[in-house]
Design a protein around this nucleic acid. Structure first.
Lengths: 327, 327
DNA sequence: CGTCACTATGACAACGTTGTCTCCTCTCGG
DNA sequence: CCGAGAGGAGACAACGTTGTCATAGTGACG
């Protein structure tokens, strides 16, 4: 900036005035300054500016499990859209479902003085956030609640959605329904399991431990689980997949199976409608999730001091399958 | 920091020493400082630190067309992985295939003094980058080359891949092959079209304008195009989809068609193997694209001054279809 | 012609850090 | 008992900006 000032023959304050469009600069002077800026390729240092002004940095942090997962990338996109409308930029990070990594990312973002943080929490302990939140960094939890603190949260109706899935299958005559979920340490997985049990109760279906399996999904593990579920006289006639990845693994496991069980997935996924048979899913609007969370965050950034809110977004059953008929 | 110093009864420089793990601090003093830091929830301001040290900011910028598109989110993930290994964080932005937006994002990132920029360019003019690059911000172009400047670039073999696709179909007896591509303003779309022509020539297939359509894809437009291609005595017997989105649109358009043409897509996509029939694609390793670009960027960040490099990654034809047989 | 209001500009401090230099106080060898 | 050297700590400036205040010039007005 001082180089620009020297070249234009003015003080650095005048350069500052020009780059900030402040009035009270003579047009001729402004032009000389602009020319110097152009010539030197000057770009003001936002870090220094934010430091001096004590203003917001114009960034927010977003932490998800994996930015490469279509579910989270859609979320990312929705968040970015809102952030852009508020003139903010987005720092993203993948926690890899690891609470230490999550913590590291959050603290790093705080050290960068992001204006707010959106997080799909991996861990269950968020006490480390208390000082940061007290220091004025708003935090909104997405898809899963905070472990041990009260904070803004935006969730989907995991329980209701799974109840609906069970009811749908029960209506088609299924009595032996299996549930394959992610690790029960994950809030959404636990809730959906709870919904599964609740759905069984409401539909007068006896709940069999042997038809439930909860673990971090891999193709191999899901393959084994599906094979086991389909064996014997008590084989499952329907399977509920606890999330999009599990649904895909199940589909792959079923690819060469003769008598396929009915399948309902939680989370919609691209091409679900083009498979044969098409896959019925409990769909929720991931964009809406991101929008709601980001809107809430920016309300906080702009000073909203009301008590922490908990928003639960609805889900809807998208019936597609011709494969639901019970044998 | 001065609050911490006051509470611990030391100078702020000593606090600085403690948070930077500098030696020559008495253990007792260090402990007092740590306690004060803990009590006050102090977190050092990275912005100020970077300003003072004149060091790198520890961030890089990534600009893609749409962070929500699975193709770009996989790229994002790969870039993040490398960035993390270099202790950097990633600012992301979607250009929405709009060169003004791209420019805005790049300049904003530069103002934030990112250590480097990775960009999937939307526009064809990148002169605006020259001052930034001269000022020392390395830029690597991904998937498409820069319009009018020489810079590091990582591409995939668009031409070769499409030639291979045509050859594959020709081997199965197809003579009337259609090509549906994105807007020819997009480098990859233009290259793939070039590959299509080249493939036709090499396989002795006469090239028909009427079998080619290049436009920003929407479901409606692709639906119409497919309907047109399949009409009449000269109907296409095979279709090459110029990218993953087009492939999905084509699949949807073909969902209720009786005599489906063979389909080969450029870009692999999830579930392509589970469709009926499975979809043959020209696959390329998106992660490798991100890795290569990020590695190249960090080499530049660390001072590599060698002449700009152009890396072209191979593609491979993944044959899946049972649908390739010509009628 | 003195005063006032107004415009255009600059000097300087401050934002929160850290590098450099200096100072003080031990300890230890001679 | 003195001097050298090391260890521990602080004062101060500087990073690149911008807010505050001061200053110089200009024209209008009584």
């Amino acid at each position: 900036m001082s180089d620009v000032a020297r070249l234009a023959g003015v003080s650095i304050k005048t350069v500052s005035r020009v780059v900030n469009d402040e009035p009270a600069v003579h047009p001729d002077t402004a032009e000389r300054v602009m020319a110097a800026i152009e010539q030197l390729g000057f770009r003001r240092n936002l870090g220094a500016r934010n430091l001096r002004r004590g203003s917001t940095t114009g960034t927010i942090g977003l932490i998800v499990e994996d930015v490469g997962n279509p579910f989270y990338s859609e979320l990312n996109r929705a968040v970015e859209r809102i952030a852009t409308s508020f003139g903010r930029q987005v720092l993203t990070g993948s926690s890899e479902e690891n609470s230490d990594r999550e913590r590291e990312l959050v603290l790093e973002f705080c050290a960068r003085r992001v204006d707010g943080i959106l997080v799909v929490p991996a861990g269950l302990q968020h006490g480390y956030l208390v000082p940061e939140m007290r220091a004025g960094t708003p935090v909104v939890f997405i898809d899963r609640p905070a472990g041990d603190i009260v904070a803004d949260t935006v969730l989907v109706d995991n329980l209701g959605g799974t109840v609906e899935a069970v009811t749908h299958l029960a209506k088609h005559g299924h009595r032996r329904i299996a549930f394959l979920g992610d690790s029960p340490d994950i809030f959404t997985a636990a809730e959906r399991l709870r919904g599964f049990r609740e759905g069984c109760v409401r539909n007068g279906i006896s709940y069999h431990e042997s038809l439930v399996s909860m673990r971090t999904p891999t193709q191999e593990y899901i393959g084994d689980a599906v094979a086991r579920l389909l064996r014997g006289p008590d084989a499952a006639t329907a399977v509920i997949a606890g999330n999009n990845r599990i649904a895909v693994h199940v589909l792959r496991a079923l690819a060469h199976v003769e008598r396929r069980p009915a399948l309902v997935g939680f989370d919609d996924f691209e091409l679900a409608d083009l498979l044969n048979p098409p896959v019925t899913v409990v769909a929720h609007d991931v964009s809406a999730l991101g929008h709601a969370a980001a809107e809430l965050l920016f309300a906080r950034v702009q000073g909203d001091q009301s008590p922490p809110r908990k928003v639960v977004l609805p889900v809807r059953l998208v019936v597609r399958g011709s494969g639901e008929a019970a044998p």
